[in-house]
Design a protein around this nucleic acid. Structure first.
Lengths: 207, 207, 207, 207
DNA sequence: TATGAATGAGTATTCATTCAT
DNA sequence: AATGAATGAATACTCATTCAT
């Protein structure tokens, strides 16, 4: 209709911007509707067409995997920060551990997205390849953090750190799907259970 | 497949038989395709029409819920048996505990079905009502078993038995979706992890 | 399940009773759901099976036609009574005329049923045969009443009485489908419009 | 049917053309089968898929409503033209009035479509919203025409013009569903009845 | 006479994906 | 690079009707 006047983006810039807007829209729609958000909705929210979406991502699931990847990496980063700052902070490592687990457990929406992609991976071998790569990377990173945490609190690991990481993830996922949508404000009982489990695995007494 | 010997079935018998064949077919198809198995496939496998299926079950999900219910109740039964026989057997309670957990964890297909129905319950409030009822019942029964087990092994429970049951279920579900379809015979690493977690929660030393 | 103890009905009595209960149930369900009430619902309400229903009526529509027939004949009867009693009553024929039209117009549910059966008759020639027979009979009876009414009030008919009857019916049906389900107690504007039309056709002044 | 000459359509043109073809097909199928024409049939007749149909219209009923809307607006237009040209023509206003009513009454198929959508509106509140809007607009426009017509013929209105419009519509609908498919060429008796009614409501003598 | 299990063809609607422009 | 119209196959579910018992 109207001729848009733009401050000339280079091809690359514009391409990257479109991609970002698609990812942002996907994040928004997945938060609202879960992984069953439709490609149409995501594209519309981004202000683009479905075709544009497919120009940037080979499938709906690979788009969702991308936003999961970003979330996971920022989660790891946050945990690292927490681990570092806790040393210098009041309350000591124990308080930090609590914060850590709360962070791990807080993202119900993300856990559900991960579950749905994991289920999809079971059915689609080619997608499984991509998913596993992401999962393994995340699990390894989480394992390293657990290791550092154990050293920090002077705990002995009763099993490989990677396995503990896998347990924590499984537990978070398993509890996320159990949870019925709760009243806002209600503290989530899943959180405290996960804490107890980790304490036990690190052979620490409960609080 | 087989030529049925029709020694004149009464109406009630025939109805019950149809119902059983539908449940059997559902079990088979769900094992193959997961909960996304279509009503058409299930009905066809059973050798009936879709209409017949709906004459016996109000919705696809309620049919799947039914087979999950049967499985859960036979699982509880098996665990009870295990608990009783272990007392009199060699190897003592520890060996029994291992068997117990293996049993809990071995049913990957069932865990996946439970996960899919749980996800469905999140989206459909009326189904959630039915699902929750089943889940709560199962969790309570499992909790009671955990309690008896703790007494048996002389362990102290660090949290309500129901919570431990919920954790075990969450863990089994969470690990089931992590697993890729594996070669038959491969021992499943998830099993040993769950064992460690339960040991820790019961404050028992690992083996 | 249980063996019913009955005071032995003859075959004919029991048959007639079943028929009556089916008709009664049909009336009830049609009042609730309209002509789209399902055969299953009707049979269940009657306490019988669908098969029993088909033993008594050749099709769903012929059952509905039957209850429409009964209603129409009792409607004609009521109008005749009204016509007779009005002569001897205070308020004279004018008051009676009003009552008459209110009666004609009051049965929204029946009008809707008639409309749905009429639409069905357009699509199904064999049913049309039955329907037309009923309709023509009713129209003729209504026409005769209009004639007597005209004599009673000393009016001149500007067209064949049968045509006036057809117009009244068409108007009642046409207004019934225009109406949205209204609050109970709200006086229906359609009623007064029909009155004016009849007054005009009888060349009477409005009130 | 015809070989389209593709002088390169713009996207908008092509979209509009598809829409038109769908509407055209809907008109055709509705004329043949009534409002119960299936989405599948309509889409096939148009030469598209069901999906394409749903890309253009939110539901089957909204598509049908659209073709009813177009018909109603062209009907109003035709009546306006008739009203204007009648003044200057031989036969005077009386002849015009006859033509007018014939036009009003002639479209049996459309009346039936309106009836079916009206019945659907009774069952579906959200559709009722759309339908009522169309109906009210049409009724108002028709009322204005009745008013102008009354002035033209020097008649006094015995009730609000809108009510007369509603009566005419109800009568046309009510007669349309009464009618059995007639032999071509047979003059429709419904027409003359409606004429008499309008004459009476305008307090004009019959011809 | 009444049963009720089973049929089978039907319905509207949804969706990720493609491709000519 | 982005469009967006169109695809086509799949989905759960409904219903009047039949028929062996």
């Amino acid at each position: 209709m109207e001729k848009p006047v733009r401050t000339r983006l280079t091809r690359g810039e514009s391409q990257a911007q479109t991609r970002l807007r698609l990812l942002e829209a996907a994040r928004h729609e997945v938060a609202r509707q879960g992984a069953s958000a439709s490609v149409r909705d995501i594209a519309e929210t981004a202000g683009f067409t479905q075709g544009a979406l497919y120009a940037h991502f080979d499938s709906k699931e690979l788009l969702l995997l991308e936003i999961l990847r970003e979330h996971m990496s920022s989660e790891i980063e946050a945990l690292e920060t927490l681990l570092i700052t806790s040393r210098e902070q009041a309350g000591g490592i124990r308080a930090a551990l609590n914060l850590w687990l709360d962070a791990l457990n807080s993202d119900e929406d993300w856990a559900l997205l991960a579950v749905e992609l994991q289920m999809h991976a079971r059915r689609d071998a080619s997608f499984a390849h991509h998913y596993d790569q992401l999962f393994d990377g995340h699990n390894q990173a989480l394992g390293k953090l657990v290791e550092r945490l154990a050293i920090e609190v002077g705990a002995t690991l009763s099993m490989p750190a990677r396995d503990i990481a896998a347990i924590l993830t499984a537990l978070a996922h398993g509890m996320a799907i159990q949870r019925r949508p709760t009243k806002r404000g209600t503290p989530d009982p899943a959180g405290s259970m996960i804490k107890v489990v980790l304490n036990r695995l690190l052979e620490l007494p409960d609080e």
